[in-house]
Design a protein around this nucleic acid. Structure first.
Length: 627
RNA sequence: GGACCCGUAGCUCAGCCAGGAUAGAGCGCCGGCCUCCUAAGCCGGUGGUCGGGGGUUCGAAUCCCCCCGGGUCCGCCA
């Protein structure tokens, strides 16, 4: 039950009746006062009546109803004070285990695709943000009563995997060594292969430009940089590095073999496909292991290569070739978007008015397809195969234009609904202080490394406090999730490990700690919680504040999940935990001698415990009872 | 050149979409609190021309316009 909504409605109906206006208009203007002593609900009367706002506000003073004990005027505002006794009784007599997780009146089917890292190297901090956001919005939608499917798209048909396979081929397709995580091992081989090919290509170029001293110098300085990087890489995998240095001698040879690998794999060459799948799956196993620590799992993995093999892509190609919107563009086949969608369609597809959408090249001059072509096929597959209403792609903001082109292409190819119902959940970059990350060069901060660093700090903190070590992974998980989720997705965040490691009052562990406090009070209590036995006479100060905060939770949850804005829930939980901890320090609960008062206090604890339990779960954070 | 995101306290961020009361938190810094339900806590202090300028409004951090700064994109890469 969303009780605060009922209270607001009472307030709105009173005002609407008095002023003879639409109650819905009044309701939409109700807000919470900026200062507690002003009241619990407020409405600026001037938002309804421009003239005489102050006088009218004065005239509306003195109302008393079921949930509102008094209304008071304050300038143009009319403030309402909630009857805490009535609120207490009605809130806690209906409080159940799933309190606050209001089900949507309109359940829909969603597919959330997230993370989708290339299976060529370990996950890094950018993937961390993607995975946490994706997992959380899936949890939010599920908790809201929608059907949700999560997928991970495996980009195995592109150049990057082929480069990795090229390197592995030169190494004789080795078995992964013991003692090193397989995705890290593959990441090294990929980086070495890449860097060596680049070095060879630069060396060849240098030979040719010897007569042009300026160009020559430029190339040499680039080469120097790569040599430094390659030395770093050698320290990580000496044996592989030396073999590859010996075997990769010619960039042309590498280039043509990589293209051949791509072609063979696209055509499902039996021998090569088996090999590639085996290594790709090894990388995925590494991903799963990393993400398992964050309690992130997928309903399934979709391979780009499958879309090529099972004809989905060629079907799309056929559609494009027959489309009236196709055009020849610099020797390629493209979809002309800007000439074929008007303002109305742009709005439907959420394309900025002033943006001139570039043509989408779908077939290269050499008649091979591009990533986006396969993405069109994949999107159709997602909608059709899983029979969903909406597809949410959690993808970095750099991909905004390709995502727009994708929606427009679907629309123009006759999949209007798919184009409209494809949502790009965009997030900004993660900067890591002092380090420029490059997966191509093997320079990145891995998710595993971050996890372990936070973990070692958490362990020393637990030891210092004399706490229990059993929940340390859950504590690390909450620290990471909180750090990512407390900032809006659209904001660039600078990832500072030292701040995440500081498990202070603005952190996931703080919320877990508060939960543990509340839980243990309830666990130690022997009282039977009966609303009729609660004495609400001292429902004042922090207790009253907590009561109202608990009552607001359903509204906060609805907003958070309908707007997919986890930061709203985080901000609310922080203020709930703050209020609880202030109260906890000031007043005893279990030691309160008056049974009625004690029971009333226990109800407040119960409310806080439930709200924290349910919201932490929705955020993917484990509510733990001991720290 | 164009499009999008961001700019709020020394640092990291809420608040902006749906305008409303003296702009909030955490960290940092200074000073206190454990014979008492978990001190990852509590109490007090410190700190802001809400990037700048104009406009709309009774009222602007919030809406509109211009400008400045940071980031991203505008590939026959993925």
């Amino acid at each position: 039950m969303n009780i605060i909504k009922v209270v607001k409605e009472e307030f709105a109906n009173y005002i609407a009746g008095k002023l003879n206006v639409d109650p819905a208009l009044v309701l939409s203007n109700i807000e919470y006062p900026s200062k507690e002593n002003l009241g619990d609900l407020a409405i600026p009367i001037s938002s309804i009546r421009k003239d005489r706002a102050q006088e009218i506000s004065k005239e509306l003073e003195g109302y008393r109803g079921k949930y509102i004990k008094i209304t008071k005027a304050q300038g143009i505002f009319l403030n309402a004070f909630i009857d805490e006794k009535q609120l207490f009784v009605d809130l806690f007599s209906s409080l159940n285990d799933s309190y606050g997780l209001e089900k949507t009146p309109k359940p829909l089917r969603y597919l959330v695709e997230h993370t989708s890292a290339n299976p060529i190297h370990e996950l890094h901090v950018g993937h961390l943000r993607n995975a946490i956001l994706g997992d959380t919005i899936a949890r939010l939608l599920k908790a809201r009563g929608h059907q949700v499917i999560t997928r991970f798209y495996v980009n195995d048909a592109g150049r990057q995997v082929a480069t990795l396979i090229y390197g592995l081929e030169k190494l004789g397709f080795p078995e992964p060594p013991h003692g090193v995580k397989v995705d890290h091992w593959l990441g090294n081989i990929y980086a070495i292969t890449n860097v060596l090919i680049e070095i060879r290509s630069l060396q060849e170029e240098a030979e040719k430009t010897k007569e042009d001293p300026q160009k020559y110098r430029e190339i040499i300085s680039k080469l120097d940089e790569l040599v430094i990087i390659s030395n770093e890489l050698r320290t990580k995998s000496e044996k592989e590095f030396d073999i590859l240095t010996d075997k990769i001698r010619d960039s042309k040879e590498a280039e043509s073999r990589i293209l051949e690998i791509i072609r063979l794999y696209e055509n499902n060459d039996k021998r090569l496909s088996e090999i590639i799948r085996r290594y790709v799956n090894l990388a995925l196993e590494g991903f799963k292991e990393s993400l398992k620590k964050l309690d992130i799992e997928y309903d399934g993995f979709d391979y780009e290569s499958d879309l090529l093999w099972n004809g989905y892509v060629s079907e799309v190609v056929k559609l494009i070739l027959n489309s009236p919107y196709r055009e020849n563009y610099k020797g390629t086949i493209a979809i002309n978007i800007s000439d074929n969608i008007d303002e109305g369609v742009k709005e439907k597809l959420r394309i900025p008015k002033g943006l001139d959408v570039p043509p989408l090249v779908v077939i290269r001059a050499d008649s091979t397809t591009l990533y986006t072509t396969r993405d069109i096929a994949y999107t159709i597959y997602k909608f059709r195969n899983f029979n969903v209403d909406y597809v949410i792609n959690v993808i970095a903001e750099e991909q905004t234009i390709p995502q727009i082109q994708l929606r427009a292409a679907l629309y123009l190819l006759g999949f209007k609904e798919y184009g409209i119902n494809l949502i790009h959940y965009s997030y900004a970059m993660v900067n890591v202080q002092g380090i420029r990350m490059s997966s191509r060069l093997g320079r990145l901060i891995s998710l595993d490394e971050i996890f372990e660093r936070v973990k070692s700090v958490a362990i020393s903190k637990i030891k210092e406090k004399g706490g229990v070590l059993e929940n340390v992974d859950e504590i690390v998980n909450s620290a990471l999730r909180y750090a990512i989720l407390s900032a809006s997705a659209s904001k660039q965040i600078s990832f500072d490990i030292n701040r995440i490691v500081d498990l202070n009052q603005n952190s996931g562990p703080y919320l877990q700690y508060t939960y543990a406090r509340a839980y243990n009070i309830l666990a130690k209590s022997t009282d039977k919680l009966d609303v009729n036995e609660a004495n609400t006479d001292d429902m004042i100060d922090e207790k009253r504040k907590l009561l109202i905060l608990i009552a607001k939770f359903p509204e906060v949850f609805e907003y958070t999940s309908d707007n997919l804005s986890p930061e709203t829930l985080i901000t609310y939980l922080k203020s709930l935990a703050d209020a609880f901890n202030r109260w906890y320090d000031k007043e005893r609960i279990l030691q309160e001698p008056d049974k009625g008062k004690r029971i009333a206090r226990l109800f407040i604890v119960k409310g806080v415990e439930r709200v924290l339990y349910n919201s932490l779960n929705v955020l993917g954070i484990k509510p733990i009872t001991r720290m």
